[in-house]
C-alpha cells in the first residue's frame, strides 16, 4: 500500500510535476505516513533517478530543475508535520544565497539554489541586489555553512570581495565557506578574493558545495 504510494511520489518528481507532488505529500499526511519516510522512501528516490539519468546523458537540465521544483513543493507540505513530530530532514548544510548589491541578475543564482536544495542542502535565497550587511546578517542568523554569491557584471563582482572582507572584519570568516559564481568570475578572481570555491555552472556548484561541507 505504502510502497505503491512511494512509487507515485518518486514518479511525480521524475515527471517534474509540483502539483502532483504536493497532493501526494498531502495524501501521505492524511494516510498517516511518516513525513520523513515519504521523503526518503518516496520523493528522494525520484530525485536520485533524475540525477542518475542526467549523469548518463539521458536527461537534460530542465528535467533536473523541474524535479528540484517538484521536490521543493513536496517538502514544503511535509515540513510542518516533521516539525510537529520533532523529526527533521537531514540536510547537507545551510546555504545563504544572493546576487550581490547593484546586480539584478537572478536566473543563474536561482538555478544554483534549486540544484542545491534538490541535492539536499537547505537554501536561504535572499534574491537579487542584496547588500553585504544583509547577507552577513542572514548568515549569522541561520548559522550558515556556506554563503553563495552571484554577480554577472564586472562592476558588481567587487561586492563578492566586499562580503568576504566584511566576514573577516566581523571575525566570522572561519565559521563560513564562501562560494562565488557569475559569468565574469574566474579561478584567478576566486584566488584573489580568497573565496573557498566557484563553479561555471549550476551542476558544478553542487559538487563544490558538497566538497565545502566535507562530502565528496
Amino acid at each position: 500500500m505504502n510502497q505503491a504510494h512511494f512509487e507515485k511520489m518518486s514518479q511525480s518528481i521524475v515527471n517534474g510535476d509540483p502539483v502532483l507532488a504536493t497532493s501526494l505529500a498531502q495524501n501521505a499526511l492524511d494516510m498517516g505516513i511518516d513525513p520523513l519516510d515519504a521523503i526518503t522512501q518516496g520523493f528522494v528516490v525520484g530525485v536520485d533517478l533524475v540525477g542518475a539519468a542526467f549523469s548518463k546523458g539521458d536527461a537534460y537540465l530542465p528535467e533536473l530543475v523541474m524535479a528540484g521544483e517538484a521536490m521543493k513543493a513536496a517538502v514544503a507540505v511535509l515540513e510542518p508535520e516533521m516539525h510537529r513530530r520533532g523529526t527533521e530532514r537531514k540536510t547537507l548544510g545551510k546555504i545563504v544565497l544572493a546576487t550581490v548589491e547593484g546586480d539584478i541578475h537572478e536566473i543563474g543564482k536561482s538555478l544554483v539554489g534549486t540544484m542545491l536544495s534538490a541535492a539536499g542542502f537547505e537554501v536561504f535565497d535572499l534574491g537579487v541586489n542584496v547588500s553585504t550587511a544583509k547577507i552577513i546578517e542572514k548568515s549569522k542568523e541561520v548559522k550558515a555553512d556556506i554563503i553563495g554569491l552571484s554577480a554577472l557584471l564586472t562592476t558588481t563582482m567587487v561586492k563578492q570581495k566586499e562580503v568576504i572582507n566584511s566576514l573577516i572584519n566581523a571575525g566570522l570568516r572561519s565559521a563560513v565557506k564562501v562560494m562565488v559564481g557569475g559569468a565574469p568570475v574566474t579561478r584567478e578572481w576566486v584566488e584573489q578574493i580568497q573565496a573557498d570555491g566557484y563553479s561555471e555552472d549550476a551542476i558544478g556548484a553542487v559538487d563544490i558545495a558538497r566538497q565545502l561541507v566535507g562530502l565528496s
Binding site: 546523458g57 537534460y60 537540465l61 543563474g108 538555478l111 559569468a183 555552472d201 549550476a202 551542476i203
Partner: peptide
C-alpha cells in the same frame, strides 16, 4: 540557446 546539459551560455 543555453546548453541543454549545463544551462551555460
Amino acid at each position: 540557446a543555453s546548453d541543454l546539459r549545463t544551462g551555460a551560455y
